[in-house]
Amino acid sequence: MSSQYFKLFSTCIPVKGQSESLICDIEYGQIFPIPNLLFEILKSNKTKNIEQLKDAYNGKLDKGIDAYFNLFAEKNLGFYTDTPEEFPDLNLKWQSPYKIRNAVIEIENLENYSISNTLTQLNDLGCEGIQIRILTTIDLDALLAEFECVVGSRIKYIEIFLPFNADTPFEKLIKWRNFDPRITKIIQYNALEEKVIEYKENYYKDVFFLTKKSLSSTSKEQYSLDRFAFNIDTFAEAQKHNIGLNRKISIDSFGNIKNYLTHKSTFGNINDTLISNVINLTEFKKDWNTNNTKIEKCNQCQFRFSCVSNVEIIKKNRKHYKLEECNFNPLTNQWN
């Protein structure tokens, strides 16, 4: 038995944090917190069989090693093998054919800039996901007409935030959902309650949500375990890129082009600037590759390959920092 090797499945990847480590199961989107000592053990088990591993710790961790490996096997996170060389690591090279991957579009009225033109440009660039933030009560039917180009497009996902308005008949929202299946989520903020509206006819999941929360251009990023993305695409992208800002574009309610709405810099206005030109600007892309490993505090965090944050990055004394800190402390492993 002990001349065998223990291997985690190559989609279950240990990530070290300052005070606690994590096994990220990026095949099935689950995580398994482990002590840092175990992280070290798992790192060296690539070259050592179980017997050699135990020897390396002078037999002091025999029971712990056995208990953990058995648990991992039982939880379907790993397996025992005589031929570890047959199972190469997952190649974490990331690549994408989409020149823009996601976009945030803020809308105050239909006059400030052309929404349909913006959507058409995004589609041409391969944009997968779009977040529409409507700030005011506007004519929903007139807005819908701007979305004609979405039907049959390459766009994969659209979520819409709009202010709750008791006078808006629900039928108007249903019309949006029926317009195209790409419209996957319709969230009304400033509502009187937190609620998922049961309306599943022909659909595969919930689409309509109410929330008491409010929304503005300065709405801050939230951090919690259930917001992290544990999957192969995101984990691979996070190795070398900032998973919030990489290939993202935002348009504020005046048509200003930004990396993200809360950022200071603007890169022209959508009324006279093509998105395809903006994304060639070095300055616009400057933080696309600033991944969490390069950012102070984040580089100590076990969630650094799954935490999607759009916060502005600042540089001080050749070090990168986030403009706003999150509510997790990797030193104490505590959420505030």
């Binding site: 499945f9 190559s10 989609t11 095949e27 099935y28 379907n76 060389e85 047959e86 199972f87 190469p88 690591d89 997952l90 190649n91």
Partner: peptide, 9 residues
């Protein structure tokens, strides 16, 4: 009990 799909040489 979900299948595991991993790279193989």
């Amino acid at each position: 009990n979900r299948n595991r799909n991993i790279p193989y040489q």
